[in-house]
Design a protein around this nucleic acid. Structure first.
Length: 265
DNA sequence: CTCAGTGTTCAGTG
DNA sequence: TCACTGAACACTGA
C-alpha cells in the first residue's frame, strides 16, 4: 500500500540497512517497463562499487544518495516494496532489482504489478518528476491559511485536490478518504467552498493521520480502531465504521471513494 | 471467469 | 495555459 507512510517506512528500513556501506553486487531483471529510461545493465554499472550515503524521500518518491552521481530514483507504483534480507536467503517473489552491500545485507525491490519505476538521475531534486511535486505532507505542511488561499483557486472536488501530487505530495486514496472522514467533509465538495475552519480541520487531520501511520511503521493493524481504514474495503452493502456509521462508496476524481454520509458534509 | 485496484501519465476537451 | 476527465499501463486476488 505505498502511500507516504509506507514509502517513509521503506526509506527508514533501507537507510538503516544500507547507509555507509559499499554496494558490492547488483542484480536486475530485464524489465523495460520498471526500468524507465535506463537499461538494467547501465543501472547495475552505475551502482556497483558505490557507497550509499543516505536514502531520501519526497512525496511517494525515494532516491538513494551515493558517493558518486547518478543516483537511483524509485517509485513503488501500486504494489512495490523493499524486502530486506541477508546473503544466502532467497530473493523475494516478483523481485525486479537487488542490491547487495558489504556485511552481507541485501535489499530487493519487489513489484508484482509492475507499476513501480526505477530511474537514474544526476540530480533527482532538480529533475522531473520531483520538481513538480507540491509540499511533502509529512515534512513540509504549510500553515492552514496558506493552504486555504491555494484551495480557493481550485474548483474541483476536494478529494481530487488531495490526490494531486503537485499540491499534497504523498497523499493517496486511503489517506484522502481517511482525512475527509475524520474532518467531516463530503469528498465531492469543491475545494474552493471550504471555510477557513474546515481547511484548518482538514490540515489537522491530515497531519495527524500521516504522522500516526508513520509512527506505527505503516503497519495497518496498529492504526487506531476508530479509523475508517479498517472498514473501507467491506464492499458489502451495510458496511459500518467502528462507531456504527453506515459507509457508502462513490467515484470521485476517478477513484473509488469510501465515505460516511451521516458525518461528512 | 470477471473485475476492481493503495498510482502516474498523457491525450483530449472545454 | 489552465482545469479537468478518462483511458492506458500489468497483474493479482477476491
Amino acid at each position: 500500500m505505498p502511500e507516504l507512510p509506507e514509502v517513509e517506512t521503506a526509506r527508514r528500513g533501507a537507510q538503516r540497512h544500507l547507509a555507509g556501506r559499499r554496494i558490492v553486487a547488483v542484480a536486475t531483471v530485464p524489465d523495460r517497463l520498471v526500468f524507465d529510461g535506463v537499461s538494467p545493465r547501465r543501472f547495475a554499472r552505475a551502482l556497483r562499487g558505490r557507497q550509499v550515503v543516505a536514502v531520501h524521500r519526497r512525496g511517494k518518491h525515494m532516491w538513494i544518495e551515493l558517493d558518486r552521481r547518478p543516483w537511483p530514483l524509485i517509485h513503488f507504483g501500486m504494489s512495490g516494496s523493499f524486502v530486506l534480507y541477508r546473503d544466502g536467503e532467497a530473493r523475494p517473489r516478483f523481485w525486479r532489482m537487488e542490491l547487495g552491500v558489504e556485511g552481507g545485507r541485501r535489499l530487493a525491490l519487489a513489484d508484482p504489478r509492475r507499476f513501480g519505476r526505477v530511474r537514474l538521475q544526476g540530480d533527482p531534486e532538480r529533475e522531473s518528476p520531483l520538481v513538480s511535486l507540491g509540499f511533502d505532507v509529512l515534512e513540509e505542511l504549510p500553515p492552514s491559511r496558506e493552504i486555504a488561499v491555494r484551495l480557493e483557486r481550485r474548483h474541483t472536488a476536494i478529494k481530487a485536490v488531495l490526490l494531486d501530487q503537485s499540491f499534497f505530495a504523498g497523499v493517496g486514496n486511503w489517506i484522502a478518504d481517511e482525512v475527509l472522514y475524520q474532518a467531516g467533509l463530503d469528498p465531492r465538495r469543491p475545494a474552493s467552498s471550504l471555510t477557513a475552519a474546515e481547511v484548518a480541520r482538514l490540515r489537522a487531520r491530515l497531519r495527524a493521520v500521516v504522522r500516526r501511520a508513520v509512527e506505527v511503521g505503516a503497519d495497518d493493524d496498529r492504526f487506531p480502531r476508530t479509523w475508517l481504514f479498517h472498514h473501507r474495503w467491506g464492499r458489502a452493502k451495510g458496511a459500518r465504521t467502528a462507531r456504527g456509521e453506515a459507509i457508502e462508496h462513490l467515484t470521485v476524481g476517478g477513484r473509488t471513494t469510501a465515505w460516511v454520509p451521516s458525518r461528512q458534509r
